[in-house]
Amino acid sequence: MLKLIKAYPIILTPTNSGYVVTVPDLDINTQGSDIAEAIYMARDAIGLWGITEQDDGRDIPEPSTSEPVHEPNEIVTWVDIDFDKYRKANDMTTMRINVSVPKYLKVLGDEAGINFSQELQERLKERLIKN
């Protein structure tokens, strides 16, 4: 399976309280109190924007390969994002599903105070998610 990793150019504009971040390819903005936080916030904004586009059935656009137009006091850099990894770490949307178990397991689980939903989630993560 092809990993969906991209690197988008960002522009960091200094302000009195840190940096405004512009992602020209996606027409989104964020901010950070210093360069490290601004880059972190840019990656988060790009990741959230990207998985929202996927959820809405739209493709994530390819990033520009050239430096965007910017002012002399602005910093241009690229931010990489692994959209699959971002989704695994941040998409906590839940879905209701119907699961059947033998009656005796339901009784034993209830007696033991087991949260069936939580137990199923933990087992599925162990089995399906490879870090």
Rank of each mutant, 00 (worst) to 15 (best):
K125G: 04
N29F: 08
R87G: 01
I114D: 08
M41S: 04
S17L: 12
L124M: 12
L12I: 04
Y8V: 01
L124A: 07
L108N: 07
F116N: 03
D82N: 12
P102C: 03
D56G: 14
E37C: 07
I11R: 06
I39Y: 03
Q118L: 14
M41Y: 00
S117N: 04
S17V: 10
A38K: 00
P72Q: 01
D27T: 10
T52P: 07
E74S: 06
K103R: 05
K88P: 05
K6C: 05
T22I: 13
M92V: 08
E122H: 13
S100A: 15
I97E: 13
Q118S: 05
I51S: 07
N73P: 08
L108I: 12
A38N: 03
V101N: 05
A112D: 14
D25H: 01
Q118W: 03
W49K: 03
I10R: 01
V20N: 13
K125M: 08
L48Y: 04
G113C: 02
D80S: 13
P72M: 05
K130A: 13
N98A: 02
M1I: 10
G109K: 00
G47L: 05
W49S: 07
A42V: 02
N16T: 05
I51F: 07
V99I: 12
S100W: 04
G50L: 10
V69C: 11
V23I: 03
N115V: 04
I35G: 08
L120M: 12
V101L: 13
V99A: 10
R96M: 14
K3F: 09
G32V: 04
I28R: 00
D27M: 11
G109M: 00
A36H: 15
V69K: 09
T77C: 14
P24G: 05
P63K: 04
A38H: 01
R127A: 09
S64L: 03
I28S: 02
G50P: 01
P72A: 10
P102S: 02
D25R: 06
K106A: 08
G57C: 10
